[in-house]
């Protein structure tokens, strides 16, 4: 046995020893399979598959993270999964074709984008009833809410706007025109900015939450990737306000952006047609859903590389993780 190989094995062992045990769990919605995949964050193995309603896309935790809400678009409802048993234990009304939603920080209200009906439906989670419908633009999709819960931002894919909605009056207070086919809206942690991705425009608009002026339209240039393959969708922002991650669809890459300078710092190569993103609870990893390759990439953000690819269901869409 030569010494290089010994060193190699030692290094490998060191890597394994250095990785702390992780107790987190990752959940992925599979649009074509009508399931939610459950992945153990420690072993990075698929440990369960939960049957849900048809065409599941948006997923989010309840405030105490004991249950998972799932938009079942073609079943016109929200499924509630109990995460101690991994079973669907109930439903919420949603209005027709719920695609994506966001939970109010107080945990009591879900705001749901009804893609086919140009509506945002407001649902009381406890009372399990619809309390309001807000008319928005064509093909509502992205949903973001300010940390104080006062402003909801919804994007409409064909109208090409980010609608700013007052969560008390349910009135639209502002509309910001962005590039074509806006998908995801995400507030930063202090609520001062809203990030909106535009799939066809190939850009991300960073909007000042108070003045609603677009501070910067971030463009992506990747060597060897045609401009039209850059289709930004999922956005994840670190809570310390330093990094932003944007999934670039068929470019098969995630852009890492400095939240302060708004400059792209590097690109991570992941699976095919990367759609949505979630940071691990400690924000050291990024989980991405890759629609065409039907898998999930695990990006180690310190090492800056994909450390594991895990097969999930067909057309994985949304992803969330909890400790």
């Amino acid at each position: 046995m030569n010494s290089a190989r010994v060193t190699g094995i030692a290094a490998l062992a060191a890597v394994f020893l250095a990785v702390p045990a992780r107790a987190e769990t990752i959940y992925v919605s599979n649009e074509r399979d009508n399931t939610v995949s459950v992945i153990d964050g420690g072993t990075l193995e698929l440990i369960d598959t939960i049957k849900v309603g048809r065409r599941p896309r948006g997923i989010t935790f309840s405030k105490d993270r004991s249950v998972l809400y799932v938009c079942a678009g073609d079943s016109d409802r929200i499924d509630i999964i109990d995460l101690s048993t991994n079973r669907v234990i109930g439903r919420l009304p949603s209005g027709p074709d719920p695609e994506l939603f966001v939970l109010h920080p107080d945990g009591g209200t879900l705001y749901i984008a009804n893609e086919d009906d140009n509506l945002v439906t407001v649902v009381d989670v406890v009372g399990k009833r619809v309390v309001a419908e807000i008319e928005v633009g064509v093909e509502p999709e992205g949903m973001g809410i300010s940390p104080d819960g006062r402003i909801l931002v919804n994007t409409s894919e064909t109208t090409n706007m980010a609608h700013f909605i007052d969560t008390v009056t349910h009135e639209i207070v502002d509309n910001v025109l962005v590039d074509s086919r806006p998908r995801v809206a995400q507030f930063n942690n202090d609520g001062s900015k809203v990030w909106v991705s535009s799939e066809i425009g190939g850009t991300v608009a960073v909007i000042d939450a108070d003045s609603r002026a677009i501070l910067r339209t971030i463009e992506f240039e990747i060597q060897g990737v045609p401009r039209e393959a850059v289709q930004p969708v999922g956005i994840a922002l670190t809570s310390d306000g330093t990094k932003a991650y944007v999934a670039l669809g068929p470019a098969n890459r995630v852009a890492e952006i400095n939240q302060q300078t708004l400059e792209v710092e590097r690109y991570h190569l992941v699976g095919q047609r990367v759609w949505n993103l979630a940071l691990s609870p400690d924000e050291s990893r990024l989980y991405t859903t890759n629609g065409v390759s039907s898998d999930m990439s695990v990006v180690d953000l310190d090492e800056g590389r994909v450390v594991r690819t895990i097969g999930v269901g067909r057309l994985p869409w949304g992803v969330v993780s909890r400790p």
């Binding site: 639209i172 502002d174 509309n175 910001v176 025109l177 677009i214």
Partner: peptide, 11 residues
Amino acid sequence: MTGRADIRHDD
């Protein structure tokens, strides 16, 4: 790119 101004409803 022109035409990227945020045109607003309430103003």
